[in-house]
């Protein structure tokens, strides 16, 4: 099944620019791991960044020498993480958190027919990143929409006013769009969901969740 719903070009650009927050970036990185079209767009958008970067007026460096620079042992961050073989269930960039198998995730119950698995963000980072598993026919829990939100379907499907979302599809909705997706009747769905602000599950869900997780 081809991917139909891609992130907004503006979201991809922000990712390429390095200006998209960590949680939202995790969703885009996972999407482009599954979507060659968007991977190519991001590459092109990086050329835009390079052109702007190249046009910057240089700022003189102090009188350093290359040799002293190279003697100074700066530890380099980890190399790119190993990507799982194509067709793996968990997108490559996520495997360092949850392994390669969605069935091995230690889900925590969030409410009736809804489970979640929060993913860590860097200390002090605003936002929210979690995997969500929703039982067949169950409505997705409502997040408080404060700021941008991205959802990537990883297994199964859901439907909302926009259409049907399947593996690899991304819902990149403006924050004022009210939507209430429902997981497919046959298999439910698992998705990766990120928001720019801290998630607040509303209504009944909030009352169920808040004492347990301290949202």
């Amino acid at each position: 099944m081809p991917i139909i719903h891609h992130p907004d070009d503006a979201t991809l650009m922000s990712f390429a620019a390095g200006s998209l927050g960590e949680a939202l970036s995790a969703v885009i990185a996972s999407h482009i791991d599954l979507c060659p079209r968007c991977a190519a767009e991001v590459r092109q958008m990086e050329h835009v960044g390079a052109a702007l970067f190249d046009g910057l007026k240089p700022t003189g460096m102090s009188s350093l020498t290359v040799a002293s620079l190279l003697r100074h042992d700066v530890s380099v961050k980890a190399e790119r993480t190993e990507t799982e073989v194509a067709g793996g269930i968990v997108p490559g960039p996520l495997t360092r958190f949850v392994g390669a198998d969605l069935d091995q995730i230690p889900w925590k119950r969030l409410g009736i027919g809804v489970w979640h698995y929060p993913l860590p963000l860097s200390p002090g980072v605003k936002g929210d990143l979690r995997l969500l598993k929703v039982a067949p026919g169950q409505a997705m829990p409502e997040h408080g929409h404060g700021g941008a939100e991205l959802t990537l379907l990883l297994r199964g499907s859901y439907r909302d006013e926009v259409g049907t979302f399947r593996r690899g599809d991304v819902a990149d909705l403006d924050e004022d769009v009210e939507h209430r997706p429902v997981a497919s009747l046959d298999e439910g769905c698992i998705c990766l969901i990120a928001s720019e602000e801290k998630a607040r599950f509303r209504g009944l869900m909030a009352r169920l969740v808040q004492p347990l997780t301290g949202f």
Partner: peptide, 29 residues
Amino acid sequence: GSATTWIFTIARNLRIDRLRRETPWQELP
């Protein structure tokens, strides 16, 4: 990708890591 693009992406990821103190999810091309 040109050399400039590669170097831009290295600088971008370093900025995310050091200035924003976030994990860069962007891969280097």
